[in-house]
Design a protein around this nucleic acid. Structure first.
Length: 554
DNA sequence: AGGGAAATACAACGGTCCAC
DNA sequence: GTGGACCGTTGTATTTCCCT
């Protein structure tokens, strides 16, 4: 298979100079995600970066298809990094890479078999934000790599899991762990007593800090969400400060709009916490390339099944994603695109679950690169980059109006497959590119509906124009021209009904028409218009016994 | 008109509670 | 210890605004 034999792979140490040279030949022109660049940059500079099996993907003649973020981070960090380089991937194949679902910290921790993974993850996030001087529960979450770094620097956080259990369920576990860890840096014995007294009070005094905290916690019980976390932590820290100093509190509260987030008193003595955000010393790491094995091959359903069996804990799978990939594999649309399937030295499947499940579902083989022998820990650095949107792919192809074109293609796909009704399925990038090749006239549909913005979305309108124009181009143009200008419309004209309905529902944000209904009444109006039939009423029933299917355009 | 920036709607997610 | 329900937030896709 020519697809496979043209691919070569190697493991290389990329220096900033090499990165610079590679970046001179970049295909993609989209914007870099600066947050990701920064995260990678600090990982590389501080020696946290490990060879993770995610490749730099090059075309046959050496153009960079994937890896811009990592290469830019390398230059900024001034440090070298080890990476797999895959060369020989066709640009057209690379375009079909679908956006990848991101991993969460809880995913990573449970894969590492940490106990109380979810609570521990919440606590690490709180500690990191607090250590950086921010407000826990608000703002952007740090990357899983950063948080695992915090855990590595502060293994003692695990020792706070048990004491924090004693304050459950009044004090949420994640908050309890973080609070106990912070407080025990000041006074470990008092910290344990504080947490224990939250559940089992030892005094009835109304100005007792723990009693005050209990009241706040009971009052906020039953509420979820991050805003509660900020509030609970703030009052808990205030209560702890009073408790540790042996002071009474009359009224315990926190007003986020007027107060800054409280700090635990005695901060200067906290060696451990001040290091939470401090960079680690770079460490010399042995190049692992001799243990790493890269294979390019066809993966059939039987092999996929083997690879999926006993491969350790992984993310919960998404049925929509598997179905999407399976359609691509079944239609032969799945090409070797440079994405790798990653297996650790201990035999755990680190990346590729959805693709392998899709091969089983499609009962068909697909070409892939398998990387074996990776360190188990690299999973935390996978899948944390920015998703590649359809509009990015189109822009790289040199298309114009890419956001609206992407939207129009998506709508056209939904109309053609009837998914508008189900809404539990979404098109793959490959499917949309194929649709564009098969329906090039959709580009001109965009122009036909350019002025429709007052009436309906440009994407959906272009998809509908394209659909109707296949039946009768001239009448489709006329239909949309009248829909836009509203000129010369008789009382029972279908266009008039549609126009008024769309404008009415668009003006009021609260009564937005369901997407399926918008498509359905547009098709009904078109069918009446095309057959010169006046309409008394434009109605489409999507519920009840007289439920209608999506109408077919005539 | 074209294209980027800002605004918006909504799906997906994170975090907690609760039942088992 | 885990999984579903619930609530609020975040991120993405899409729409609208606005400048050239």
């Amino acid at each position: 298979m020519s697809d496979l034999s043209s691919i070569t792979s190697r493991i290389e140490r990329v220096t900033p100079e090499i990165a610079k040279r590679l970046l001179e030949r970049v295909v993609s022109s989209g914007k870099l995600d600066q947050a990701s660049v920064q995260a990678f940059e600090s990982d590389m500079r501080d020696g946290r970066w490990t060879l993770n099996g995610a490749p730099i993907v090059l075309s046959p003649d050496g153009q960079v298809l994937d890896g811009r973020t990592r290469l830019n981070a390398c230059i900024r960090s001034g440090a070298s990094f080890d990476t797999l380089i895959v060369q020989g991937v066709d640009i057209a194949a690379f375009e079909t890479i679908d956006s990848v679902r991101k991993r969460t910290l809880a995913d990573v921790l449970s894969m590492r078999k940490e106990n109380h993974g979810r609570a521990l993850g919440a606590a690490l996030k709180i500690l990191w934000t607090y250590g950086a001087g921010g407000t826990p529960g608000a703002g952007k979450a740090p990357t899983p790599t950063t948080l695992l770094g915090v855990l590595e620097e502060h293994p003692g956080v695990r020792d706070s899991i048990r004491p924090a259990l004693r304050a459950m369920p009044l004090l949420p576990h994640g908050c309890g762990i973080a609070l106990h860890y912070l407080a025990s840096a000041v006074d470990p014995i008092r910290a344990g007593q504080f947490l224990a007294q939250i559940q089992d009070p030892i005094t009835e005094a109304t100005d007792d800090p723990v009693g005050q905290l209990r009241e706040v916690l009971m009052a906020t019980r039953g509420q979820g969400g991050a805003r509660k976390q900020t509030y609970v932590l703030a009052v808990a820290i205030k209560a702890w400060n009073a408790f540790a100093a042996g002071k009474a509190i009359k009224m315990l509260r926190f007003a986020p709009e007027r107060e800054s987030f409280p700090r635990v008193a005695g901060e200067l003595d906290w060696g451990p916490l001040s290091r939470v955000v401090a960079p680690r010393q770079p460490q010399a790491k042995p190049m692992a390339s001799d243990q790493i094995n890269v294979r390019v091959l066809m993966i059939d359903p039987a092999l996929a099944d083997t690879l999926l069996t006993d491969r350790g804990p992984n993310r919960t799978v998404s049925a929509v994603v598997i179905a999407k990939y399976a359609r691509d594999i079944e239609a032969g649309r799945w090409r070797l695109n440079g994405q790798t399937i990653k297996i650790s030295a201990s035999g755990r499947l680190l990346d590729g679950q959805h693709r392998l499940e899709a091969a089983k579902k499609a009962k068909k083989a697909f070409p892939a690169i398998i990387v074996e022998g990776l360190p188990d820990g690299v999973i935390s650095s996978l899948d944390i980059g920015r998703r590649r949107a359809m509009s990015d792919v189109l822009r790289e192809r040199g298309e114009a109006n890419t956001i609206i074109l992407a939207s129009a293609l998506r709508w056209l796909w939904m109309i053609r497959t009837g998914v508008v009704l189900a809404a539990n399925s979404s098109p793959s990038t490959g499917e949309l590119l194929e649709l564009l090749d098969a329906t090039p006239q959709i580009r001109s549909s965009l122009k036909n509906v350019a002025a429709i913005r007052e009436i309906m979305g440009s994407g959906i309108a272009a998809a509908l124009h394209c659909t109707f124009a296949e039946k009768d181009a001239e009448r489709a143009d006329a239909f949309f021209a009248r829909l836009i200008d509203g000129v010369n419309l008789a009382e029972h004209s279908p266009v008039r009904h549609l126009r008024e309905r769309l404008i009415r529902t668009r003006a009021s944000h609260r009564v937005r028409l369901a997407e399926a209904e918008r498509v359905a009444i547009s098709i009904k109006a078109w069918n009446a218009f095309r057959t010169d039939r006046p309409l008394q009423l434009l109605l489409w029933r999507n519920r009840g016994t007289a439920r209608e299917a999506l109408p077919t355009p005539v």
